[in-house]
Simulated assay, not measured.
Amino acid sequence: MATIPALQAREPYAGSEQAAGLWRRRLGGVLTGLAIWLPLLVAAGHVVVFTLWTSWVSFTASSLMPDYSWVGLRNYRAVTRTANFQIAYVNLVIFGLGFVLLTMALGLLLAILLDQRVRGENALRTIFLYPLAVSFVVTGTVWSWLLNPGIGIQKLVHDLGWLDFRFDWLVQSDKAIYTLILAGVWQGAGFAMALFLAGLRSLDGDLIKAAQIDGAGPWRMYRRVLLPTIWPIFVTVFVILLQSAIKTFDLVRALTGGGPGISTMLPTLVVYDFMFQRGELGRGSAAAVLMLLSLVVVLAPYGIYVRWRRQRQARA
């Protein structure tokens, strides 16, 4: 009976300790939520607010400083009639298709080669992924040296005795856009390889064994069995690379600067030219909104596809 008061005396202490532990857990949850959601909300608010502001400015008479006098579609008509804008979107089609298709093809080839469990796979994977660690500014600068006919590959081959060799695409207005594709593919192929290789390594081993039992050779197995199985990864890689091509600025700025002349202009350079070189804020905002619409054209079908795929999996 003497122990009962002692137990009763400990009960308030145990209860307070339990309440303190519950309070600490709740506080930890609140702090974790703040650490995660607060930066996301700030970033989302930043994007939404400035997107809306840029859209509003694109309909105003703003020049060097904001002027909120309404002018309707005048800035859009002025921008779309310039040679810079028209050449930029022709170049975007050339650069986008060349960059995306070649990057996917090279990345897929590298992924299939590494999927053979070759010796030194880890070292090769590191080498192929290395360009991802390099910024587009560095990539553009280095490739500008390599492709410069006076100091790059052409000069090296000439010094070796092949004086008829020419590789001066960088200074030819009709070929300079392809130098952007070369540099972009060099940097983006490792990214595509990583996603394709992850998809191939995630496949069920029984699927591969069944194909081998049926007598499928390596080429037929990849073409008929493995690659069709990872087709959602193809869609993902395609969309990511395409939106990257639309937003490309650093690479073209460092490699060609939009030249020779305006032969390698891209939409991002048009926005930069209007806003920061000409001081035409309204027209620059209109060019930015048009570039945003280009991204929407790419991302909206992808969003619809992802939603359709989730609904299909839920029904299954």
Rank of each mutant, 00 (worst) to 15 (best):
L41K: 03
P267T: 13
L92T: 05
R307H: 04
I177L: 08
W70N: 07
S294N: 01
W308H: 10
L22K: 08
L113A: 13
A192P: 04
T32I: 07
N84F: 14
G282D: 02
I36L: 13
Q18P: 00
I112G: 06
F85K: 01
V185C: 12
I213L: 15
E121P: 07
H46D: 12
N91H: 02
E11F: 08
L197K: 09
A189N: 02
G284W: 02
A14P: 07
G140W: 00
D204M: 07
L251F: 09
G28V: 02
R117Q: 13
S135Q: 03
Q172K: 13
S294K: 01
S69H: 14
W53T: 10
A286T: 01
S202H: 04
V138S: 07
R25G: 15
G29T: 09
I112R: 14
W162K: 01
G259R: 04
V271N: 03
A183K: 04
L146F: 03
R166F: 00
I94S: 03
V306L: 08
L293T: 06
I151A: 00
Y76E: 08
L281M: 09
S285K: 00
W162D: 06
A287Y: 03
Q212V: 05
F238Q: 05
H46V: 09
I87A: 11
L163N: 08
T236Y: 05
L110W: 07
I94P: 00
V296H: 04
G15L: 12
A20P: 01
F167H: 03
T268F: 02
K209A: 07
F196L: 04
V47T: 13
G107I: 06
S285N: 00
A316P: 00
R312A: 10
R309A: 03
M1D: 15
S135C: 04
A88N: 15
E11N: 13
M65H: 11
V142I: 12
L97D: 03
Q311G: 10
G184P: 14
L290R: 01
L295S: 02
I262N: 08
L156C: 02
V298G: 05
A83K: 09
G188S: 08
I4Y: 11
E11Y: 15
L146W: 00
G188R: 09
